[in-house]
Amino acid sequence: MAAPLAKEQILDTAEEVLRRFGLEKASVVDVARALGVSHGTLYRHFPSKSALREAVGERWLKRVSIPLAEIVKESGSSMEKLQKWFQTLIHTKRSKAIEDPELFSMYNALAEESVEGITAHINELIQQLTEIIEEGIRKNEFKRSDAGQVAAGIFYGTARFHHPALAKEWTSPNIDEEFRLVWNLLLSGLKF
């Protein structure tokens, strides 16, 4: 008797199938075939094709947010953590978009299918920024303010550099200099 399927095993295989057949053509039957099980077995873990696709998209978003959460926990200057957090976010998304644009596009389409998943992801990222800013306020690195509003403002103010819908702009030869200009402006509002 075969060992029961783990959710991660199903998601790994679903990613491979999506990569091989594309977002439009891949089916639950294709995933089940690749796993050597019936499609009914997959429905025990995911009630629909949509739920499976949503789980793949949400897992991709977690791959973005988990390394950022680790930065929040680091010791050191809040200013340095804030800058490292944004550099990591931008580098992660940019490298995925440049190295495998088709896969990047597919994952974004999957993530966008789940409005709740995207909203939760954005809220998670803004909460991470809020924690860094609150720490900076406590350490007197940043001026007193509503950390949540500042975090949201910085996140949305830098969207050009990390929002997947704007990925085509990331190949501009001036993108790093443009980020530096925006970053310096945002920091001037944070500092004493």
Results as ranks from 00 to 15, higher is better:
Arg160Asn: 02
Ser50Arg: 14
Phe161Met: 03
Ser48Phe: 05
Ser95Phe: 04
Ser77Gln: 08
Ile126Ala: 06
Ile98Gln: 14
Arg138Val: 01
Thr158Tyr: 06
Ala6Glu: 14
Ser95Ala: 14
Glu24Ala: 15
Val37Trp: 10
Leu89Cys: 09
Leu166Pro: 00
Ile98Thr: 12
Gly57Met: 03
Thr92Gln: 12
Val37Thr: 13
Lys93Asn: 09
Ala34Leu: 05
Thr88Phe: 03
Glu99Asn: 15
Gln83Phe: 00
Leu125Cys: 07
Ala32Leu: 10
Tyr156Ala: 06
Ala32Asn: 10
Ala32Val: 09
Gly157Cys: 10
Gly148Asn: 11
Asn123Trp: 02
Thr130Cys: 10
Leu187Pro: 07
Thr119Ala: 11
Glu113His: 12
Glu131Gln: 15
Glu54Met: 01
His162Lys: 08
Glu134Asn: 13
Ser188Lys: 15
Pro47Ile: 06
Asp100Arg: 12
Ala2Tyr: 08
Ile118Trp: 03
Leu181Trp: 11
Ser75Asp: 14
Ala32Gly: 11
Ala97Gln: 05
Arg160Phe: 10
Gln128Phe: 12
Asp176Tyr: 08
Pro173Trp: 02
Met1Trp: 07
Leu110Cys: 06
Met106Arg: 09
Tyr43Phe: 15
Gln83His: 09
Val31Asn: 05
Ile137Ala: 03
Glu80Ser: 11
Lys25Val: 09
Ala165Leu: 14
Gly117Trp: 02
Phe161Gly: 01
Pro173Gln: 11
Lys73Glu: 15
Phe192Thr: 07
Lys143Glu: 02
Asn108Asp: 07
Phe155Gly: 04
Ile122Glu: 09
Asn184Glu: 15
Pro4Ile: 07
Ala165Phe: 02
Ser105Asp: 13
Gly117Phe: 04
Arg19Cys: 03
Gln9Phe: 04
Ala120Gln: 13
Asp146Arg: 12
Ser105Phe: 05
Ser145Asp: 08
Gly22Cys: 11
Ala109Gln: 15
Arg20His: 14
Ser188Cys: 10
Ala69Asn: 06
Glu116Trp: 01
Lys73Gln: 15
Thr119Cys: 00
Met1Phe: 05
Ala147Asn: 02
Ile126Trp: 00
Ala151Val: 08
Lys84Gln: 13
Arg33Gly: 01
Ile71Arg: 09
Thr41Pro: 00
Gly148Ser: 15
Gly153Ala: 10
Thr88Tyr: 06
Glu70Phe: 05
Ala34Cys: 03
Ile90Trp: 01
Glu80Asp: 14
Trp60Phe: 08
Lys96Phe: 07
Pro101Arg: 13
Phe86Leu: 13
Arg138His: 05
Trp85His: 11
Arg180Cys: 01
Phe192Pro: 11
Glu54Trp: 00
Tyr43Ser: 03
Lys62Asp: 14
Asn108Phe: 08
Ile154Tyr: 01
Glu141Cys: 10
Ala151Glu: 02
Thr92Met: 06
Gly189Ala: 11
